[in-house]
């Protein structure tokens, strides 16, 4: 009962309340409150995440599993960053309250937290992001070898859009007079036709489908039809 029925009841009730609340101006702001509660919940849940991170890495180190040295690096960088940020190590005092250390700002590289953000986190994440340039290239390369019509359509469109975005596209099509019947073949018109007509149409249908899918998934959960996520049945 406690383990099976009550969670489903809670789920349905909270779902129905949120749906109905949207239709009354008095309760409309309930969703904002719920979002702020969720943020707090997610904040406290970090205890679980941190506990798991510590447990996994400590276990790796203590049992000397392959790669335990890397687990130690993760563990040390996690702990140093966490402690430095919690005690605001090296923070610049707040000008109006220099006597309250924890009111200081740790955003500049003067503070350990700011330094780690500027010289560790930010370059690492930016480089991971930058790797995408290579992956885009290799994905395109492989998809070109695919022999079906759909893949060619995808890559062909991508290639044309890429061409017209850079100067080369304009150079190739500039000779077409802008007021002739073939003006639609000029780079800027091709881009406009593909993005404004075809892409917009595709996107609209995708969005309509997603909206219905979202609604149906929500309904299945709220009505208790889909119990895969929670119930121990």
């Amino acid at each position: 009962m406690l383990k099976r029925v009550i969670p489903l009841v809670i789920l349905s009730a909270s779902g129905l309340i949120l749906i109905l609340s949207y239709f009354s101006p008095i309760t409309e702001s309930l969703s904002e409150t719920v979002v702020s509660w969720f943020n707090i919940l997610a904040g406290v849940a970090f205890v679980l995440g941190a506990g798991n991170l510590l447990a996994v890495n400590l276990e790796k180190i203590s049992s000397r599993r392959p790669g335990w040295a890397y687990a130690a690096i993760t563990l040390v960088s996690f702990c140093v960053m966490l402690i430095a940020g919690l005690v605001k190590w090296g923070a610049v005092p707040n000008a109006d309250h220099p006597n309250v250390h924890l009111a200081g700002s740790q955003d500049s590289t003067q503070a350990a937290y700011g330094w780690a953000y500027e010289y560790v986190l930010s370059p690492l994440t930016a480089t991971m992001f930058g790797l995408l340039a290579f992956y885009v290239a290799s994905a395109a390369f492989r998809a070109f070898r695919a022999k079906n019509f759909e893949a060619i359509l995808l890559l062909g469109t991508a290639f044309i859009i890429l061409l017209v975005q850079i100067a080369l596209g304009a150079m190739l099509t500039d000779w077409i007079p802008a007021n002739s019947a073939f003006a639609f073949l000029r780079a800027e018109s091709i881009k406009a036709i593909v993005t404004e007509t075809f892409q917009t149409a595709g996107m609209r249908a995708i969005m309509i489908g997603i909206a219905l899918g979202t609604a149906a998934t929500s309904l299945r959960l709220i009505l208790g039809i889909d119990r895969a996520a929670l119930a121990k049945d």
């Binding site: 970090f46 995440g49 941190a50 991170l53 890397y70 687990a71 690096i73 993760t74 563990l75 040390v76 960088s77 996690f78 702990c79 140093v80 960053m81 966490l82 940020g85 919690l86 937290y113 780690a116 953000y117 560790v120 986190l121 690492l124 994440t125 991971m128």
Partner: peptide, 13 residues
């Protein structure tokens, strides 16, 4: 490893 450790702590902070 450094990225995982530092970023996990960063978002917790």
């Amino acid at each position: 490893s450094i990225l995982i450790g530092v970023s996990a702590a960063y978002w917790m902070l």
